[in-house]
Structures are given as structure tokens and as C-alpha cells.
Design a protein around this nucleic acid. Structure first.
Lengths: 154, 154
DNA sequence: CGAAGGTTGATGACATGTCAACCAGACACC
DNA sequence: GGTGTCTGGTTGACATGTCATCAACCTTCG
């Protein structure tokens, strides 16, 4: 590790702001989601991803990849959601090892009930506080960073 | 919950990008920190906050507030860090209920060893990928959101 | 065929975070 | 000085996430 280039004042401030925002936004969104719909953020994400899928069914590994979760985490989480009746597991016809998650009626009901409030919360606490230019900047640089972090070489 | 205003394409994309970046960046920074310094991000944050304090000592509640942690979480975490010799607890002279955390020599050594690499990782995976304008925008809107979320009325 | 090697999920042990109950000292008020 | 309440911190039970490991299964190749 050679000479470190420390962050200048603005960079430091931006980095701290980012982390603080992240924490507070997380807390707030999770709080509203639990209060209004009885779901955690991970629950919401699973249901949301699943409900946007044509057949409302996904291979576990496919879902894990989309969510950037480990297979193990997904498996544990689905077990819990399954016990609450939000999703179901089925065997995969094409691959004997595989499994498929599906949305139960209760799961669909839950996400349909939760979505409007959650989107409103995201708006109120983030999106609507940003100017169109800032939204565009956020869109641009987050994708740039994601590309960097998922580049094969790194 | 009245008529929901869904997110338009750009907003949706920005929101997803944000969440994806957040997750990947977290993973990467945590990975490097563990590998290079044997610290978790929470460990690093505690040590860093502590080392920037004049006397390298802080009241628990003060530290908890700065980090946006619950007292309980901080207490648990400090117990673990204390067992590893990174910090120490002392009684508070001014308030018999209170306690003070201090940095041990080992703790100071650990943060001094970890900081250059961590800052470099933050640069490499985020800061240096943004234009100066984007840094400025990030700085501006994150603080705006933080203000919104910490406003007394909400 | 059948063994080797990679993939898919499930599982148990463990680390970490949250919530609620609790205790002791501070504080207010009579 | 009591007495009730508040505050700072600790603790234990529990929820969640990670890692290592395992069994079942596909695929390839001798």
C-alpha cells in the first residue's frame, strides 16, 4: 500500500453523507414496511421480484443471482417465508437437483397490498427530494459503479 | 394511501442502481477490510470514530448517537471488541451510570494499519469513478435526505 | 457402464443485530 | 429525606445473515 491519497473535504463529506443516508433510509423504509404491511425489506424484495416474473415462479439460483444473495441465504429466507405461507417450493421438472419458488395467493396479496405504500415511502424519503438532474446523476454513477464491481477482472 | 404515483423509468432505474451499488459496494469493502486488516466494517467505524476524538475516549451514548446505533447494539459490539483487546471500558467520573470507551494501543495500531487500505478501496470502488460534479451532487442530496429523515417532525 | 468433477439446494454452527426487560444512578418534587 | 420518574447501559431471547459442509444430481469422458 503506497502513499495513501486521503479524501478531500468534499469527498469526505459526500462519503459520510452517503453512509448516513443509507442507514437512515434503510431504517425508515424498513420501519414503514413492517408497520404497514408486516414485511421486512428482504421479504418485500423476494415477493416483488417474484411477482414481476411472467409465471411468478423462479429457479432458486436465478432468484439468488438477481438479488445478489448467496444460495444459502435465499434458502434460509425462503424457508421462513414458506412457513408464513408467502411462497411455496416445487421440484424442478427439468433438473432433478433444482427447485422452483412460486408465489402463493397470500404472497401475491401481500405484495399488492404493500407496494403502493412502499413506493410512496421511497418517493417521499428519497426520490421527491432530488432534482431531476440529481436523479439522472444517481442513475448514471450507480450503474457505473455496479459495472466496475461486477467486471470479470475485479 | 391514495392513488400511488409509480416511479417513472429513470427513477426506477436510479433506485435499482442505488440498491445494487449499495449491496455490491458493501460486500467489496467488507471483503477487503476483513482480508487486509481482520476488521469488520462496524469494527472499523467504531475505531475510526474513536481515533478521531481528541482524547480517544467517548461516552457510550455519544458514540451510539454518532454511529446511529442502538445502545444495545453498541454494548454488544463493544463487548466483543473488548474481548479482542481493541477497546476498553471505563467508568464515567461525572455520571455514575455512564461508561466511557477508550481506544487501546492495539486498537490504535489496528486502525492505523487499516485506514490507508480502506480509504484506497473507497476511492477505487466509488470516489474515483465519479466526476467532480457527481461528487458534489452526492454530497448535496445525501445531506438533504439526511436532514429530511432527522427532521424532528418526522 | 461408471468414476470424476462441477452444480444445486439444504442444513447446522456460528456471528451479528434487534427487541424488550431490567437495574442502578440521576433528577424532580413534595 | 422519601418517592416516582427518567436516563444510561447491560443482558437474554430471538431473528437474520454467513460460512462450511453435505447429499443429490447432472455432465463428461475413459
Amino acid at each position: 500500500m503506497e502513499q495513501p491519497r486521503w479524501l478531500d473535504a468534499r469527498e469526505q463529506s459526500a462519503w459520510r453523507g452517503y453512509r448516513r443516508m443509507r442507514r437512515l433510509l434503510d431504517l425508515e423504509l424498513a420501519r414503514e414496511l413492517t408497520r404497514d404491511a408486516g414485511l421486512s425489506e428482504p421479504d418485500y424484495d423476494v415477493l416483488s421480484d417474484l411477482s414481476e416474473t411472467p409465471d411468478q415462479r423462479l429457479r432458486l439460483s436465478e432468484l439468488a443471482d438477481r438479488m445478489l444473495w448467496s444460495r444459502s441465504r435465499l434458502s434460509h429466507h425462503l424457508t421462513r417465508m414458506q412457513q408464513r405461507g408467502l411462497v411455496a417450493r416445487e421440484e424442478c421438472a427439468a433438473d432433478g437437483r433444482g427447485a422452483v419458488v412460486t408465489l402463493t395467493d397470500e404472497g401475491r396479496h401481500a405484495i399488492e397490498r404493500a407496494a403502493p405504500g412502499h413506493v410512496a415511502a421511497v418517493r417521499r424519503n428519497l426520490i421527491d427530494l432530488l432534482t431531476p438532474d440529481e436523479i439522472a446523476a444517481l442513475d448514471a454513477f450507480t450503474h457505473r459503479v455496479v459495472d466496475h464491481l461486477t467486471r470479470p477482472g475485479e
